[in-house]
Write a protein that binds this DNA or RNA. Sequence first.
DNA 1: CTGTTAGCGCATTCAT
DNA 2: ATGAATGCGCTAACAG
Lengths: 335, 335
Amino acid sequence: MTEEVKVTIDDIAERARVSKSTVSRVLSGSAVVAQPKRAAVLKVIEELDYRPNIFAQSLVSGRSFTIGVLTQNIGSPFYDAVLVGIHEGFGNSDYSPIVADGRWHLATEQTALQTLLDRRVDGLIVIGGSVPKEKLLRTGEQVPLIVVARHVPELGSRCVYLDNFEAAYKATKYLIEQGHREIAHITGALSQSDAVRRHEGYLQALSDAGIEPDPDLVVEGNFRRQSGTLAVEMLITRGRMFSAIFAANDQMAFGARLALYRRGIRVPGDVSILGMDDEPASAYMTPPLTTMRQPAIEMGEAAAQAILCLLNDGPFPNLQFSMELIVRETVARHI
Amino acid sequence: MTEEVKVTIDDIAERARVSKSTVSRVLSGSAVVAQPKRAAVLKVIEELDYRPNIFAQSLVSGRSFTIGVLTQNIGSPFYDAVLVGIHEGFGNSDYSPIVADGRWHLATEQTALQTLLDRRVDGLIVIGGSVPKEKLLRTGEQVPLIVVARHVPELGSRCVYLDNFEAAYKATKYLIEQGHREIAHITGALSQSDAVRRHEGYLQALSDAGIEPDPDLVVEGNFRRQSGTLAVEMLITRGRMFSAIFAANDQMAFGARLALYRRGIRVPGDVSILGMDDEPASAYMTPPLTTMRQPAIEMGEAAAQAILCLLNDGPFPNLQFSMELIVRETVARHI
DNA sequence: CTGTTAGCGCATTCAT
DNA sequence: ATGAATGCGCTAACAG
């Protein structure tokens, strides 16, 4: 590690025979500088390969040109897809994202958040997570904040999340368009609003298609794989025919797949299965995994753009997304 | 965005009735401070929720507590896996990685590198990429540098990369252990050293197992999918029997799978296929994709730890890795 | 248009 | 053990 000589703005000023202010001005373009001087400065900068010290710049400006990103698990397909979008969103802007990982532990998450704040990030993107809403709101008062994949009503348009109702609606509609009429639905735990919304979307799609919803085709699960398996057993026990299953998440779809396999029912030959995803854990469960990738990327990109807008008082983008379904007729290959 | 009052070290000093030097000392522990004063300072810090301004700290110390990571494509399974390892490696250290994306364009990559350098990162991890070796070496003189997934001899132990020979050796050995004796090999373009090394590993494994290598079982491919398909056609044309195929990368394994499928040859029932991966593009091709994940994570983690050692003059870790094969008997589900 | 001056917030001598 | 003084490199008034 050779100790390279660090050239400062004073060096430039001296060799260009101007004051450091002038150098600063040609650098930032904050004021007009006479052509000759300007050229001289530029020349010296080039010669000495001068790079302004970002620490000093930050100290005086108060800005770091960094954006904090609080994710929940680096390496998780869903969260990583959001990160992809975020990086794309910042593209050639002057801002660099700094990612901190909450690892799905509240304590870790809060530490990570504090780290980001201590680094004086100019903006913050929080992806999912479980920091209390209040803390989030408080943070949002200190620094431009966008929340992804989590709905915080008080944050209004500063949230990017998927519309569960619409997603389920589209999923069901897709199956209908494929010719299915008897579509079973395995719900998530109906104590959770996500599950309820998805159920409602399912019902609405049926109604809109003129299909009478049949309670016998609906089984409540709990978002876990095994509940998908049990749900199929239940459906079969009921004796009601069905040609397709819409599971409220991929884990349960996976479990449903297993139950059908055991019964010798072919997928998608005899029965089609459609799952959906917005839980990282379920993204893990089903390796083909791309169900949520595209919308996740889009959410990330939108979040990055939104941050940039907040930072520049630019026009605020529309953050309402609806999930693009990347349909999988079968959810898993190996049982 | 309420303008929060920023509390500085002076505020603490004043309210604790000590000098700012003392506050600085209790903060950094750079000198012993009398208990009572120490307690007072801590108390005030707590009360005011004081956070040292990292810009000022960096300006005076010259350190950013930031590590630059130059990757080639965020969103690529292989590169992302390395990033996972890097994040893990920095764990609870005081350092945060800042990731910049080269997007597989040399120009973009160089810009990204410069961005990182301009941010005055304390260390740099370069994953693959194509910046000229010379530039890399020069950079390595300015800042602690570790190169991952690329072999730069001049960098000596500051490179973390996979041993292609050993990887191929292990892959072949695995097949032998599964009982295969007639193992075909689809090589990469033999103009590339990676392909040659893998071929050599294949041959060595056979020899060590007392199996006479048969040239008729080796077909040269070019790392692309179609060459895998053609290679299988070629093998079948030759009429030589084989029970397993070791392809030098996943793309070709994928192509081989296709050829067998067309012929009605079951995988892995009739023939086993084993691929390997160290090209991001091929990681894309075969969605189950985890072939290289674990070793990639380990490389990333090692790189992070190495950087930390470089920064603290700690013991330098051993960076020699050999690829852990995560075996796939079949490479793709859909043809 | 341009030079001079005064901090930004902190760590670090240097005295005491 | 502690306070006062100095400067890190830069930007932004403030005169000219």
